[in-house]
Design a protein around this nucleic acid. Sequence first.
RNA 1: UCAUCUUUAAUAUUGC
Length: 420
Amino acid sequence: FFPDDVLLRGLVKVGQLDMALQVIGEKAEQGIYKNVLHVNMLFKALIEANRLIHALKIFADMKGRGICPTLVCYNTLISGFCKVSMMDEACRLVKEMNTVGISPDLITFNTLVYGFCKAGGIVQVFVLLEEMKEKGIKPDVVTYNSLLRALLEADYPGKAQQLLTVIKDKGSSPDIITFTTIIDSLGKAGKFKQASKFFFLMINEGILPNVIACSSLIHGLCKQGHMHAATGIFEDMKRNGLTPNRVVYNTLIAGHCKAGHPDRAWSLVQEMTKSGFPKDPYTYSTLISGLAKAGQLERACEVFEEMRLAGCRPSVVVHNSLIDAYCKTGHMDIACRFFGDMEQRGLVPDVCSYNTLIAGFCRAGEVGIACSILLQMQENKCGADVISYTTIIHAFAKQGNQAEALRILLEMKKMRCAPD
RNA sequence: UCAUCUUUAAUAUUGC
């Protein structure tokens, strides 16, 4: 009864992407592509669901039927490529835009700036900024926020103050995202005092913190074990009418576990549940690893059971947590069993799964087995990273086996593996 | 007529 485009929008909104694709497939002849708004919504939803390929298929079909995509449509797909760091493809689309006579706008450039920042191409970003200048497109606070994050991550986060000044000099007003980016970077670098400083600086500049700003600061404080201060921010936010969300709760729960207070973590789990947030996959993995680290492996296993009973499929992270727990208690057999379980459950072990086992065998003095796991990774197309190599290098060094340590070190250089 | 589409910030697991 509904016009097809309204139906399409509805399906996208409730997340029925397969049905939406079906509607597109059936109605392509009848002009479903006329309402570009809803097609764009579908593209965005597909990208968010890691199904960029499906979006590209429709995109090709659309063009095949002589329909010219809009600027927003191009921007959406470019963003999709940027999110997965496929910058060559992103640039190809920009070229295509130009050939069909659509000029990239500020959002196009912002998307590309974000993409190159994420892919580590700072040089390219400055090329883009030049190009924007030539075209008379003035960077805005979004442009600067993306760049700020990349610069803080690459360089020393101590540059925050200078960069903030630069943004103002360029004529943009730092916004809550600017400050949150700074607070987050500082917090992740362990500089919680600086992070707090910028939090209050933000308030002084008349920007009211939101839940995300608070959770960033709370995370920084938790990371350094300052649970009292973190709890203080948590209380402040509630007093000021901000409702903590699951991220805030999960962050504090992880903090309490790490600080060796699973009891406090549990009472927050209760509060969270009472506030209308049932345990989510983050809560489960936080509790499982947290309880195990606090020496309560039995309780961790109970949570593992509970999550399965609740119909929450144990993720790779949950398996990794248990593998680590059993490695650290000297049960390599059980750890290996959990590793095997993953494949049986249709999960693909990630770098962290392998690294955890490698570390386990190194700790057990079985560096040879650790090396064979390293080889296994290559066979299974799972690229080893800096952690994989350094774990083994340290193990050999500890045994006094300089020759082998050096051999792995050279191999690491040769492989130019991913940094941590 | 209006509205609806695109860009930037927060949480869990591995080595030192």
